[in-house]
Nucleic acid binder design. Structure first.
Length: 415
RNA sequence: GGGAGUGUAGCGAAGUCUGGCUAAACGCGACGGACUGUAACUCCGUUCCUUCGGGUUCGUAGGUUCGAAUCCUACCGCUCCCA
């Protein structure tokens, strides 16, 4: 199976500009492909992982992976279909660039990968050079027709964001020139920006210049919701923002209807392996074999093998439910990945305890959950609103382990 | 600058003409529970705060009234049309 066939089988292909041409270019030469990310946040989240997975597959298919950290484009802002973005401060941008660069480096290693920051060339471009060298090559008429711009004409779009597509076009051309990058990969919303780049390359280098674009379909789950949120929160790749345990659990909890789709999309398992897992999953869905494998593979890719083992150890401890007999050391060891909060040594009423530990948002809510039997302290269900929590009662007086609902854990640490 | 709209709980959206029955319909989301396979579906409950007596809300500030999300005035924000 070639690169494109593999993507099709995985359901990871939305549009390609010239499928045959791309395959030919790949077989004739070691070409590069790139994915760009603007540093809009200090960490990547699962949505970002999607194009990176495809880039990695491209690399595995013998290509060279190039990643742009968009210091320059991030300073401008890729227009959203609805509203204008707020500009990020230079300090924020710098911090975000640093965080994201570190993550990408971890994902791709240092092998056949190039990580560049487009601020290196965009930052040096003077206004007059920009207008003379690039502005002349872009037709306002074409730019206005791009989907994002068209949708913004109603509500308004600043000149700054309007210009974004030119900047991304310049990026593609720069990489084409410097690193033999002939393919740009992105989400389906990037089609317009990608074709801007291809057009620019053709305008500067001539129509015979090889440049291709490939987009990936928007990922949704079986109920049609946008993928990648857990309880309304984004799943981050940064272990500080989303613990490896939570990350692992996110994948482990995927529904049967979605799991095969995600195996195809988010793992490098072979066709045979995935087909086998699909079969196993259908025959015995309750064993959650496919989900387990999915969780292992993706957690390994993002956080490493040690994190997988840690997450599985923690999961085993939590879901056995038998936590009261663990030692303080075991608690510290196993529950390190669970959200924690600081507590005082003195005994405290259950409701106050939950609110002070920010496990509950208000006393009202805390009472409701306690009354419903949703709260367990050190493994023991507490339904009495007057109950007093004494940190000294378990784990050498060091910890109080709180469980809310069926599977949310919090660790109180005595100061 | 002129004209027309609009601003309600996390979001969407009723209620405004015909003031009290409105802490404010309904939907989504979120949270909890039952079921289960740490799934999906379904079902049930909760969703401003509370010392459970009550308190504070419907863009903001005033006013009318026994009583205002609902009427009046000013201001602020947003959208559209004309210039």
């Amino acid at each position: 199976m070639n690169f494109i066939e593999d993507l099709k089988w995985r359901g990871a292909l939305n549009q390609v500009t010239d499928e045959a041409g791309l395959l030919e270019a790949m077989s004739n030469d070691k070409i590069g492909a790139y994915v760009g990310t603007d540093p809009t946040a200090p960490s990547l989240h699962l949505g970002h992982l999607i194009p990176f997975m495809v880039l990695k597959r491209f690399q595995n298919a013998g290509g060279k992976a190039v990643i742009i950290i968009g210091g320059g484009t991030g300073a401008i802002g890729d227009p959203r279909p609805t509203t204008e973005r707020k500009l990020l401060s230079p300090e924020q941008l710098a911090a975000n660039e640093q965080g994201i660069t570190a993550q990408v480096t971890k994902l791709f290693g240092t092998g056949d990968t190039q990580i560049v920051n487009n601020n290196d060339w965009l930052g040096k471009l003077t206004l007059t050079d920009f207008l003379r060298d690039y502005g002349k090559l872009f037709s306002i008429n074409v730019m206005l027709k791009k989907d994002v711009v068209a949708s913004r004409l109603e509500t308004g779009i600043s000149f700054t964001e309007f210009t974004y597509q030119i900047l991304q076009g310049i990026d593609f051309h720069e990489l084409w020139r410097r690193h033999n990058v002939q393919l740009q990969i992105g989400g389906s919303d990037q089609w317009g920006n990608i074709t801007s780049g291809i057009d620019l390359i053709h305008a500067i280098e001539g129509n015979e210049a090889k440049a291709f674009g490939l987009t990936i379909p928007l990922m949704t789950d079986a109920t049609g919701k946008k993928f990648g949120k857990s309880e309304g929160n984004a799943i981050w790749l940064d272990a500080e923002k989303t613990s490896p345990y939570t990350f692992y659990q996110f994948w482990y909890n995927q529904s049967d209807a979605d799991v095969v789709k995600y195996l195809k999309y988010f793992t490098f398992l072979s066709v045979d392996e995935i087909n086998e897992l699909e079969k196993v999953s259908q025959e015995n869905p309750g064993a959650r074999e496919a989900q387990r494998r999915l969780a292992q593979e993706v957690t390994k890719f993002v956080h490493g093998q040690a994190a997988v083992e840690e997450a599985e150890r923690l999961s085993a401890a939590l879901f056995s439910g038998d936590v009261a007999d663990l030692s303080a050391d075991e608690i510290a060891d196993a529950f390190g990945g669970v959200p924690s909060f600081e507590i005082e040594q003195a005994p405290k009423n259950i409701v106050d305890f939950l609110v002070d530990g920010q496990i509950e948002s208000s006393k009202r809510q805390a009472r409701e959950d306690v009354t419903n039997g949703a709260i367990r302290i050190n493994g023991e269900q507490i339904k009495d609103l007057e109950a007093v929590i004494d940190p000294a009662s378990h784990y050498d007086g060091q910890f109080v382990l709180v469980r809310r609902g069926k599977k949310k854990y919090f660790l109180g640490k005595v100061q």
